[in-house]
Design a protein around this nucleic acid. Structure first.
Lengths: 341, 341
DNA sequence: TCCAGTAACTAGAACGTTCTAGAGGCGCGA
DNA sequence: TCGCGCCTCTAGAACGTTCTAGTTACTGGA
């Protein structure tokens, strides 16, 4: 059933092979394969037939070499970040319909960001989309001098000229969480933060200002954390020892919140009866029936769409609105928040 | 500080630009850039200097187009599988030192395996490494007719001729888990399985035969499950209703085991005091201090190494040992197993 | 002194596409 | 009948690299 894939000379079949078999020129085969206009219906049919028979596939590299546009977007992502995986799903969904291909380059242990971006540049990407890049601003500026660069989820001050930024309004997300807890009647609300992680500073600030606005400046309590479950668990232990013990806690992200939940369960502190918990991200984790976490959702499809569309806009010479693209988060209320006992 | 990246004519600099600046031929520049022999030390220095000055980078696509080997391994992976991310880390670590580049292609919602492999073929990969492929065996055979294909973690019967298989001895892992529990004194040991997931059938079989070998055939209890936390949670609820209630349970994987743990905690059933729990994978999850899961570890670096080395061996015409490459798992004893009450 | 051998370098053809020009055929209005 | 435009198709150059087959210059052995 599968077409015999063997090319005449044992190598991968090329345009010329198809052309010979169909009795036309290579140029015409090229036209047919690209579905461009300039070929008659009958010939088109015959060429496709021939291509099918010898199992021809266009060579993407040769194609890109010749055409002066590559229509290739390079995406750098971290292998260990589920959040990046979710973004990638969104990026694929937007880029392919817009006629752009995606080239992936992973950041892994022993393969730093420099290696990752070098590979993308060598592949002739037209623009770079960097998910949560950690590289120094100077390096990003250097890249931005060569081609359009979009930083997703990492905020950059003026030091990285020319880099587009797409991110969530982290401070606003923290504010929504605090507002929700205050509306439920909480006053002693703690925050287990994200340390130096991207967005952590903004979430910390959002928490502080929201507390102040509710006249709770003296109840502010920021516990050092990070972005893993262990960080959350450690924060929760500190929380339990605190006096007065807070009745609610905002974690840096869902992973951290999961650690908090686990520690509270083990300590037989019922959630949300004695302590309410809020996460951040609305990851798959949070949605699971047995975790059922109230959390601040990031609008991942929107972030992905903005990242791609800004990259494309820069490539096609459209004028881009100045400044960062900031996406509003939204509170997702589930089962881990309730009024204080 | 960064070299002025502008090429003479505003486009990306090429070999010819470097050659002109250094006053040599393009062929010689090519030699220097590849670090091949055939250039004098002084000239070499001068060429490198010129390349540096105009910010030259080799064009990977043109390079691959010309050279008849591409030294490119295509890897297909699932965006939503942390296990695949871990494998990828290992694959990068092995492939790059061996002189092979990695091209990634993700399987995502709306981007099936066919699309993913098509992209890799268009990119002129020399071999394909598929992580947990779900495609029908016929499709894999069709690919294998065109180039070397390695299937990781998916077992294939004779129907997919020519496909290399690299996998963990799943039945053996299940056996180790049962042996451990029996040695602790357990007799009522249940298994929450993985349904139709890759490896699930083998683990189920390993559990059954191990139970039989210990004379516990009549205690065998397989509960339907899957590969997510929710599946584990559902299985655990079924477990609690069973009579006699099992004193130990082997989950399909760590995610499922996490769901089990959570349900047991909520039901105030202490682990491991009343019920012991074992997972499978030794994922990051299992290692977390507050989960501390006894689990069957897969040797991920070894799986990655075997996958890459088999692909390369096929490419370089070396003779490969017949049959699948099966890697032994190993039990990792942590805090969720103990003797029955 | 001559020739072989080697090291340094170059011209020009490939690789598999797309693109630019243009050739030929046909229909149609004047 | 001519002239024009349109459609289909083709020849050949181009893309940026590597490879093959030289050419030149220098060394050292007979």
């Amino acid at each position: 059933m599968p077409p015999t894939p063997a090319a005449p000379h044992g190598k991968r079949p090329t345009l010329a092979d198809v052309a010979a078999r169909a009795g036309v020129s290579t140029a015409l085969v090229s036209i047919v394969m690209r579905d461009a206009k300039g070929a008659g219906a009958a010939t088109r049919e015959r060429v496709l037939q021939a291509a099918q028979e010898i199992g021809y596939r266009p060579d993407a590299r040769a194609r890109l070499l010749r055409s002066h546009r590559s229509h290739l977007l390079g995406v750098q992502f971290g292998l260990q970040h589920p959040f990046h995986s979710d973004l990638l799903e969104g990026i694929y969904a937007v880029a392919e319909p817009a006629g752009y291909q995606i080239a992936l380059s992973a950041v892994a242990a022993g393969r730093g960001e420099q290696r990752a971006t070098d590979a993308l540049l060598a592949d002739r990407c037209e623009a770079l989309i960097l998910l949560g890049p950690q590289a120094p601003a100077a390096r990003l500026a250097e890249l931005a001098a060569q081609l359009p660069v979009v930083s997703v989820a990492r905020r950059l001050r003026g030091s990285a000229q020319g880099v587009e930024v797409v991110r969530t309004a982290d401070d606003e997300g923290a504010r929504q969480a605090v507002d929700h807890l205050v509306a439920l009647g909480h006053r002693d609300i703690a925050h287990i933060d994200g340390g130096r992680a991207p967005g952590a500073a903004d979430r910390r600030r959002g928490y502080r200002t929201a507390m102040s606005r509710h006249g709770l400046a003296d109840r502010v309590r920021v516990l050092p954390g990070g972005l893993t479950e262990d960080d959350g668990a450690a924060g929760a232990r500190a929380l339990l020892d605190a006096t007065p013990r807070p009745t609610a806690v905002l974690a840096f992200n869902d992973r951290s919140a999961t650690g908090v939940l686990d520690t509270l369960l083990r300590a037989r502190v019922p959630v949300p009866d004695e302590i309410s918990v809020i996460g951040f991200d609305d990851s798959h984790l949070a949605r699971l029936a047995h975790i059922n976490l109230t959390t601040v959702g990031q609008d991942i499809p929107r972030l992905a769409e903005l990242a791609v569309s800004r990259a494309i806009a820069r490539l096609e010479g459209e004028r881009i609105p100045d400044g960062e693209a900031v996406v509003a988060p939204h509170l997702v209320i589930r089962g881990t928040t309730a009024g204080p006992a």
